[in-house]
């Protein structure tokens, strides 16, 4: 998943958010992106949710609890019976996997980052953090479009370097709330790889949160994953050691 999508809809859903951007009048692509990213930034966040994974063999649900601090540190602990106790830690731009029966932490590198997270449509690579959309991509505003009844800005993003997982993105951003409604992620050959849709939002304390997001990996046949957030808390107190390797294996 692209950096923007990560920030919007995926693992970062633990830090996701969206503020109602009433009264704002972003005019340039850069300003729209800045508004979008500003909405997604929280000092800390806690969430409980579920991954509803659909593939050609059927549906299954994986539940999790997650914590995050800033843009760099986050931890997911899976709570469903089949995965109970398994954790994914992102810190210092590295991904670590903890399994209760494994004697060592698994640090993902190289092609292993492209593996699916728990068989979902999200890859570990989607969890890695970047320097932000504006530093990774050249952004242009391609106009406004109505997407599923929502007036949106259509942003075209082209990668500045080959170090990002997706060569280009198209993001449709709600013109009034500055939340990502739809994201298309493309490979270097121009093929559409992933699609992310925010299906439901909820409003709390004046903030708008996407609470149901569907991701489709177009390289797989007949699959999609819905992330559903049942509980969200932001700006809470989290002990920084929660994101340490020592704590992960404790």
């Amino acid at each position: 998943m692209g950096r923007h999508m990560r920030a919007n809809h995926l693992f970062i859903l633990i830090v996701f958010t969206s503020m109602v951007a009433t009264g704002l009048s972003a005019q340039t692509a850069e300003e729209i992106v800045q508004r979008l990213e500003a909405n997604e930034t929280h000092s800390t966040a806690f969430a409980q949710g579920r991954m509803l994974i659909h593939d050609r063999f059927g549906d299954r649900t994986t539940s999790f609890t997650s914590w995050s601090s800033g843009e760099d540190d986050s931890l997911i602990e899976f709570t469903s019976a089949g995965e109970a106790g398994q954790k994914i830690l992102r810190t210092n731009d590295q991904i670590y996997l903890y399994y209760p029966d494994a004697a060592e932490l698994i640090r993902l590198r190289g092609s292993a980052l492209r593996d699916s997270v728990m068989g979902s449509d999200m890859s570990y690579e989607d969890l890695t953090s970047g320097g932000g959309l504006l530093s990774d991509y050249r952004v242009t505003l391609a106009g406004t479009e109505t997407v599923e009844g929502v007036e949106t800005f259509r942003l075209e993003l082209e990668a500045r370097s080959r170090s990002v997982p997706y060569a280009s993105q198209t993001i449709w951003v709600d013109t009034s709330r500055f939340v990502g409604v739809l994201t298309h992620l493309y490979s270097r050959s121009g093929d559409l790889i992933k699609v992310s849709r925010a299906l439901e939002f909820t409003e709390r304390d004046g903030r708008i949160f996407p609470v149901r997001v569907r991701i489709e990996d177009r390289l797989r046949r007949d699959t999609y994953t819905e992330f559903v957030f049942d509980e969200i808390e932001v700006s809470i107190s989290i002990d920084p050691s929660l994101f340490s390797l020592e704590e992960l294996t404790f």
Binding site: L97, Y99, D101, A103, G119
Partner: peptide, 16 residues
């Protein structure tokens, strides 16, 4: 050696 494998539920698991 730690083995990282898919599970019957199409999730993943690892054992050393």
């Amino acid at each position: 050696l730690t083995l990282l494998s898919p599970t019957m539920r199409r999730s993943s698991n690892a054992i050393t």
